[in-house]
């Protein structure tokens, strides 16, 4: 069984991010593998451990720096990786991204299962997985909090936790599943896994290799335009009552009273 895990190299947005003049995210700083993508990687690793003959391939579309994400994916259990990188891709919208990824999946060939994170940590549209499945003509099961592949590999079953109920969904393979952070606790790679990752093959591809017309991708081909980006003002600092100051508790309760909370 061949599993492709989509991974994305993102800016470390948890510690803050900035925008460029072209209304895109400033990606010049240090980035990392999107934390949300660790969950599908871990899911694939567990499937490979539980089932026979599973090959896990990490696939990323991103700049040269995205090597970092590829390396991490290989440390986390992927057997091989494909890294699609082309200057023409910069500024692509979700549709173009899905198009390139679909071509890459076709290039890899005989893929049974595509795993993705619930969303990308930076743009967070959640569009790419479904668009990709549509382009490939395969079913998409989104938001999996758990995942099981039938023995023999004929179908995949997921559970999706919704507010009102938990759904059990299944689809025949090949299929695409997006995995949430509830699905697992990603394992920290051992030193041996890190060492072995250095030897795993990484295929570098560009648009020409995939036969994608460059005019269909990039900022120019985006069908959705970002009109403007206005960063939210930083949150006003809350009031700080030093714990070792005079009557800290009294002040705190006073504030709660003022706010009508007690």
């Amino acid at each position: 069984m061949k599993i492709v895990v989509l991974v994305k190299y993102v800016p470390d947005i948890e510690i803050g991010y900035e925008f460029t003049g072209q209304n895109t995210l400033d990606r010049s700083g240090a980035g990392l593998l999107s934390q949300l993508d660790e969950h599908p990687l871990e899911e694939a690793r567990q499937l490979a451990e539980a089932l026979d003959d599973v090959e896990v391939i990490a696939l990323t579309l991103g700049p040269d720096d995205a090597d970092e994400a590829v390396r991490r994916a290989l440390q986390m259990g992927a057997d091989a990786a494909f890294h699609v990188s082309d200057p023409a891709v910069a500024g692509s919208d979700a549709g173009a991204t899905a198009l390139v990824l679909a071509k890459a999946i076709t290039h890899i060939g005989d893929v049974d299962l595509i795993l993705t994170g619930a969303e990308s940590a930076d743009s967070g549209t959640r569009l790419v997985p479904v668009k990709l499945a549509a382009l490939l003509g395969i079913p998409a099961l989104t938001g999996a909090s758990s995942l099981a592949v039938q023995p023999g590999g004929g179908a995949v079953t997921i559970e999706r936790d919704e507010d009102a109920a938990t759904l059990t969904l299944s689809a025949p393979l090949p299929a695409l599943v997006s995995v949430t952070d509830k699905a697992n606790e990603p394992a920290y790679p051992s030193a041996k896994a890190v060492m072995l990752a250095r030897r795993k093959p990484v295929d570098e591809l560009d648009l020409a290799d995939l036969g994608v017309d460059a005019s269909l991708v990039g900022a120019g081909a985006a069908r959705v335009a970002v009109g403007s980006v206005t960063p939210n003002p930083p949150r006003a600092g809350g009031r700080k009552i030093p714990a070792d100051g005079p009557d800290a508790i009294g002040q705190f309760i006073g504030l709660l009273r003022e706010a009508g909370l007690v």
Partner: peptide, 9 residues
Amino acid sequence: VLGEAEFPA
């Protein structure tokens, strides 16, 4: 940590 990757979460 290095060999088993087993440690408190």
